[in-house]
Amino acid sequence: MSLVSPAAYADSPLFHAREGMALSGYDTVSYFNGGHPVPGRSDIAVMWKGAVWQFASQGNREAFEANPRAFAPQFGGYCAYAMSKGRLSSTDPEAWEIVAGKLYLVHSPQIQRLWQQDIAGNIAMAEQNWPDALFD
C-alpha cells in the first residue's frame, strides 16, 4: 500500500500515455459509439489529465469534453488484468472490453482471454490495487 494519500494524487496525470498519447492515439469515444476502436486524428485532439486524446470526429471530441470520465479507460488505461495482480503493464488498444458502461484495456489478446475467465473478480482486485500500484 502506498503512503501517498489519495488527495495527493487526485489531480495527477494517472493515464498511461505512450509518448504523451492516450490509447496510442485511438479515439476513446469510438469504443462506445462504434463498437470498435478507431484511430483518432491529430487535428482533432484535446489535452486532459496530462495526456493528448485524439478523436476520429469533432462530435466524439465534444462528447469527451462534455464528460471525459465517462469515456476514459479504467485504471488509467493500464492493463486491467495486470492491475488485478497489482502490477502496471501497457495495453493494446485492440484488446478491450466494455463492462457495465466502463472501458477496460488489456495488454494483448492472449491476456484478454485470461482476464475474461473472471472479469468481475479481476475488476474487483484491480480496483483494490488502483491507483496505489502507480506508486509502488
Rank of each mutant, 00 (worst) to 15 (best):
S24V: 01
S42P: 13
A133P: 08
A72H: 06
H107I: 05
G86N: 04
R87V: 08
L134R: 05
M1K: 14
E62P: 00
S90E: 15
S24H: 15
E62M: 05
Q128R: 15
A66E: 14
E62L: 13
P13L: 00
V52W: 13
E127H: 05
G121M: 02
I123E: 05
A120E: 14
K49R: 15
A133R: 11
D136N: 13
S42D: 15
Q54A: 10
A66H: 08
S24K: 07
P39E: 14
A8L: 10
P6Y: 06
W53N: 12
L23M: 13
V52C: 11
P73I: 04
H36T: 11
H36M: 12
K49Y: 01
G59H: 12
Q128I: 00
H36K: 15
A63H: 05
P37H: 04
Q116V: 02
S89A: 10
A51S: 05
I98R: 10
A70M: 09
N33V: 14
Q74S: 01
G86F: 05
I119H: 12
V52H: 14
G59Q: 15
N33C: 12
E65K: 11
D118S: 06
P131D: 08
E97W: 12
N67C: 00
F32V: 05
Y31A: 03
G77W: 08
A126G: 08
Y9N: 01
A70H: 12
R61Q: 15
F64R: 00
F64E: 02
A56P: 09
Q112P: 03
S90C: 10
P37M: 08
I98N: 11
M47K: 15
